[in-house]
Design a protein around this nucleic acid. Sequence first.
DNA 1: ATGAAAGCGCTAACAA
DNA 2: TTGTTAGCGCTTTCAT
Lengths: 358, 358
Amino acid sequence: MSTNKKSSTLSEIAKIAEVSVMTASRALNNQPGVSEEKRAEILRIAEDMGYVANRIAQRLSGGKSRVIGVIAQLHTLYTSDLVLGIGSALRSSKYEMLVYSLSDTDSQPPQAIVSLLRQFVDGIIVILPFQSDYLVSLSDADLPIVTIDEGPHNNFPKIVADNYQGARLAIQHLANLGHRRIGFISGNNQLASARDREQAFRDMQAQLGLDTDPELVASGNFLQQGGFNAAKELLRLSDRPTAIFAANDISAVGAMAAIRDAGLNVPEDISLVGFDDVAVASQIYPTLTTVKQPSAQMARAAVNTIVAMIAGIEPASSIIVLPTELVLRASTRPLGEVVAMPNSKRPRHIKNRISPAG
Amino acid sequence: MSTNKKSSTLSEIAKIAEVSVMTASRALNNQPGVSEEKRAEILRIAEDMGYVANRIAQRLSGGKSRVIGVIAQLHTLYTSDLVLGIGSALRSSKYEMLVYSLSDTDSQPPQAIVSLLRQFVDGIIVILPFQSDYLVSLSDADLPIVTIDEGPHNNFPKIVADNYQGARLAIQHLANLGHRRIGFISGNNQLASARDREQAFRDMQAQLGLDTDPELVASGNFLQQGGFNAAKELLRLSDRPTAIFAANDISAVGAMAAIRDAGLNVPEDISLVGFDDVAVASQIYPTLTTVKQPSAQMARAAVNTIVAMIAGIEPASSIIVLPTELVLRASTRPLGEVVAMPNSKRPRHIKNRISPAG
DNA sequence: ATGAAAGCGCTAACAA
DNA sequence: TTGTTAGCGCTTTCAT
């Protein structure tokens, strides 16, 4: 089929086709100004020689590289999901994706990377880490940027999940099950998502007439250890909560460990709800009731937005909010329901069996 | 500080310093042929103007981009760990990392990406997916390539974990606990790692005089669902195994679900061991005894190798094998040991009624 | 020690 | 419709 010798150049193609480089360029880029015969001929030759345009050169000469840069903290499960989603959304476009992974200690990319990306890519999708101040250093560029999630100093178009509504669903669910004393494990409040979830919790406390002791809010950090510590605190309360809502799934995993550590069971003694619906939520035991972020849709929205911006179309709205959804699993149950517990099987009040698939 | 206007160019720096572009280039690249005064002067100005070299241009003109490409399947937990490790290993070097994420359906990158990377990066680290045939299309390039894990058609320097030894450790551990009837859930046998682990299992069966019924080997695929199905098979055996060794952690997670589904408990009824030591291994309940892959070391070795190759140093050995290690957790226990179950540890039997709030 | 010239592979802008 | 001329920002080679 195609000889894969040394990645031929445009001028080689042009020479063989006996046309100028520009004609070859136009033909290959589907631009007008080439006769159909020549175009076909050139395309054939290019195909034949396995020609692949050099994006570096294209970019340097003022063109597009057709590469989208993604900046993300890959060690965060939820962020990984988003990156995967962006990847597949991009696959149906003519763009490729290259990812820069923030280290877990760095909360912002080194200047070198920012410049590198700016030089090379046509647009950047940033999945916001805890700190996003560095974004301002990008803002004067003519490079399209879209962010997922919202942080301070963020003037770019953003894609967010409806965190507030999602958290409301979670609390409502617990309230429906009869819980009135619900603990909350907060996230990292530098992130709007964390603040929204907490606000929803507080609003629902008032709205539904739940217990409102301040000690019912324990501060976490979106990490497992933080969830563990926060849950420990909640369990130490003289009148401990009958349910806990953790600001994300990983915190909930930590909380579950703390609950077990205290000799209690989920959901018999304490119902537990997370947020995100990352893979581990359906892998742990009991499986975790959680609020699903629409990460695939968010990824697609981010891709659509950035592609439009690259095409010169300003996004209609500077913020797109996507709906969240409650996923019922086995970590919640009605308060006070008396259950017979067979030795061999855990009681299951929710029909969801353990799903083997992630 | 540094004005961040429009990313100044070499010629601007040169003009201000009143030298030629070449002199500026030499100064900034630490090359000989510049007087110390001029060098200092130029460096100062560059610093001052926030000059950042354009790697695209550097690369196009035959230089290095100082970027390492990584090709990986990010949706695999273990692979993610490796990528993170590569990132941090690289952080202490002058290289940056850009990741291309294979989709879970594609097992090889599109030609476009391969060309793109070849044009842009100084070297590529490939974390092998199940199929790696595409590697051959790279082999005639003068681009340094290192792979992690081993697949077919792989003539590049490779970094691997000692899968064989690790699996031996796992089986030995189970045998030490008294298990004689051990089931095995295989991985994807296109991968050498999967084959090595299975071989170790078979060798140990013979060596330790364990039960060797062929039905004790159930075929999985390194995925959760595969582990689930395989475990189901093993549990259906009339004389079912007392312990199961899964070829990776995700399979083990699936197996654990299957075991619970059958009304059995880990580790009381069945001991379970995984492989990899990904995050979920310590997040599930009970925590999973597993064989830890030295992913940080592997990442570092890959980085060292690729950096050396870029510098023109051929690696001493074409394969580097790093040791694995058994991590003891809660999913294994001595066969037949009668355990008293303290109320606080065995959740199933306790019944902490919660008084209604109010 | 310094600089001028040429070119990497491509694409805008302008001729013909 | 086609080709020519620049030039992206840098580095190599070859002068000086």
